[in-house]
Design a binder for these strands. Structure first.
Lengths: 199, 199
DNA sequence: GTTATAAGTAAATAAACATTTACTTATAAA
DNA sequence: TTTATAAGTAAATGTTTATTTACTTATAAC
């Protein structure tokens, strides 16, 4: 039996991510993908059931998984609130800034009905993704360190600015004039922390 | 000369928004749109040059314009920082919550290369959209009332959570269990304000 | 070596797409 | 009324799409 070409599978995934990031999800076609990977369209179907299957696997395995791992590196839910938040912010920003393709696909997760389904699935099974962060927040609420809000609300208050800042990082990169420096990021995180602390 | 059917033009726009919001930008086709409006595909081309033209006009006229108007209603850049922020948050949340289709298209503006172009155009010509808000922020920075950051960074810190909360509002709406109440929103705005105030 | 078999390919297929062609209709102005 | 004309339509066009069909190839096991 002829062995699988594992290189090809990796190439399919990374080139698919590149096309989605640079030309948009709407411009990812199976034939364009095959051509750029230098394989026959049929070969994609040997590895993925169909386009939907490819996108969902791309999203779950390649993006959500790697992203979570990067964000949680060096993070410990028993850290002080400020220290933990700074770690999470730094990790998030560093990973996304260095993985624009993954960041773009995460963004698509909010608007594409297809990816949104995959995203919800992964997130609704609570604790599957980012459970250490969930516990970290609940713990700090229980101990009265930060203001009490529903978990999703706390998440929005504490982390949505960092995503927006990554977006701006890329915008400014295109205009070759960077304002989102590490110092700015640290200051922003402090602002967010100050707002939610009790007293 | 036969007069234009102005109803049809309105219907094209509102049904296009509905399809994009409910089925995604990738599922908006000219033939589906024509069928749902009950007109011939050709008629769309009497009013718009092509699909790109339709999308950009939809985005600029229907969404960005109406959205800006709603957000600025009753807002005055000479308000106190806290009062102004609460007004902007309330207006933003109320408008987006009642105009899900517009909200969804705004989200697509971040991921679709096509709409992104339109979005950048509208925003780069600074002052064209939301200039009262820009002046409001700069003024409060100059007066030392809030911490000094580049304008885009301040915007991210102060307003990205409210978008995320709208997203969550709709998520919870689908699960028929609303947690994003007006009281929660007001509290969230206070958290954000507290964070950025000097002292 | 031979061979069975999964991995791979090139080219075809049918459906869906944006846009046009060739025609019809409603009405403002004469 | 008549009529010129822009507004409208139904159906076609050529292209692009996801997916398949019918074939070829590489290699593990014998």
């Amino acid at each position: 039996m002829r062995p699988k070409n594992l290189e090809a599978e990796k190439a399919i995934r990374s080139i698919a991510l590149r096309i989605i990031a640079e030309e948009g999800l709407e411009n990812l076609t199976m034939q364009k993908l095959a051509k750029e990977v230098n394989i026959s369209p049929r070969t994609i179907y040997l590895k993925y059931e169909n386009k939907e299957d490819l996108l969902i696997k791309l999203f779950i395995d390649e993006v959500l998984g790697a992203y979570e791992k990067a964000v949680l590196t060096g993070f410990d839910e028993e850290m002080s609130f400020s220290e933990g938040m700074q770690k999470l912010w730094t990790n998030t920003f560093q990973y996304l800034k260095n993985n624009r393709h993954a960041f773009m696909l995460l963004q698509h997760g909010k608007t594409s009905p297809l990816l949104n389904k995959a995203y919800q699935k992964a997130n609704i099974k609570q604790g599957q993704f980012f459970s250490p962060v969930h516990r970290f927040l609940m713990q700090n609420i229980d101990r009265g360190i930060i203001k009490k809000f529903p978990l999703d609300v706390s998440r929005a208050l504490l982390f949505s600015p960092v995503f927006d800042l990554v977006n701006e990082y890329f915008d400014y990169q295109e205009r070759e004039h960077q304002i989102i420096t590490e110092a700015v990021l640290t200051d922003c995180c402090s602002v967010v922390i100050k707002g939610i602390l009790n007293k």
